[in-house]
């Protein structure tokens, strides 16, 4: 497909300096969008062209509110919101403290709620807006020791459908991408100290029908499609992107 599919579009990407967020910012930049990459910290590395860093704590209502005010004064509208900001806690529920539980929900779920809530008035000012949330493969099928994370992603799936129903009549489309195993710092953390990391990675690759795990670039390709006019009829859906992992039944080691 030709470049510049998002020419003239104004986009806000939360978690824009994280693994997947960076991939989306790069892709949006080549597609001609003006991008606000919002995150807790700017981190290392250069920003792609037309990508502007904004400090944002998605759990803070006042913080979200002032960022929207800034975008409104600079652009007068917002075409695209991508709610990427999320954390993972690798624990069972017994080991998860109430504070940890509330923390992951406030970032993964409340953050998506707050950013979407205050973005809607700006999306109305665009000619048809798009929100892309981040659900997960884990919202359908659990990974062991990841209970709170799985629960937040299930919540995002339901929220996505509800928002699609409520705002579809105003031309605002809402979808969620559900990544499988994507090569990011979060995945490295999930692999953790599990013995021989290279043989573990090889095994994970081989479980995938497509024989590799995903990259932020793979995710960015779908975000770009869902955010553009080609996807004008796509709304309320959960888009699983996992290299065929969830198409395959669990394999017994016989």
């Amino acid at each position: 497909m030709s470049n510049n599919q998002l020419e003239g579009k104004i986009a806000l990407i939360t978690g824009g300096r994280g693994g997947i967020g960076r991939g989306i910012c790069e892709r949006f930049s080549t597609e001609g969008a003006t991008v606000y990459a919002a995150d807790l910290a700017k981190g290392e590395g250069e920003m792609p062209s037309r990508v502007q860093y904004e400090s944002l704590d998605v759990t803070s209502e006042s913080n979200v509110h002032s960022l929207m005010a800034k975008i409104e004064s600079e652009q007068g509208k917002l075409d695209i919101v991508v709610n990427t900001a999320a954390i993972e806690i690798e624990k069972t529920i017994e080991d998860t403290s109430l504070q940890e539980w509330n923390n992951i929900f406030s970032i993964n779920v409340t953050g998506t709620f707050l950013v979407s809530k205050y973005a809607i008035p700006l999306l109305r000012k665009a000619d048809g807006g798009s929100i892309v949330n981040f659900g997960s493969y884990d919202g359908f099928i659990a990974d062991p020791g990841l209970s709170a994370y799985c629960a937040t992603k299930g919540a995002i799936h339901a929220l996505t459908k509800a928002m699609a129903c409520d705002y579809g009549p105003e031309g605002i489309r809402v979808n969620a991408i559900c990544p499988g195993y994507i090569d990011t710092p979060m995945l490295q953390s999930f692999f953790g100290e599990s013995g021989d990391i290279e043989s573990l990675k090889e095994e994970v690759r081989n479980i995938h029908p497509i024989r590799r795990y995903g990259t932020p670039k793979d995710i960015a390709g779908l975000v770009a499609w869902l955010s553009g006019s080609e996807a004008g009829y796509a709304t309320g859906q959960l888009w699983v992107l996992d290299g065929g992992l969830s198409a395959q039944a669990q394999q017994m080691r016989l």
């Binding site: 497909m1 699609a164 129903c165 309320g236 699983v240």
Partner: peptide, 25 residues
């Protein structure tokens, strides 16, 4: 077209619904 393109090179084994929100509700 998206599924045919290299942008979709990690997408496989899925049923992708395009229905204007019908089955979300």
């Amino acid at each position: 077209l998206w599924l045919a393109s290299d942008d979709a090179s990690y997408a496989t084994g899925q049923m992708f619904t395009v229905d204007g929100g019908l089955t979300a509700a």
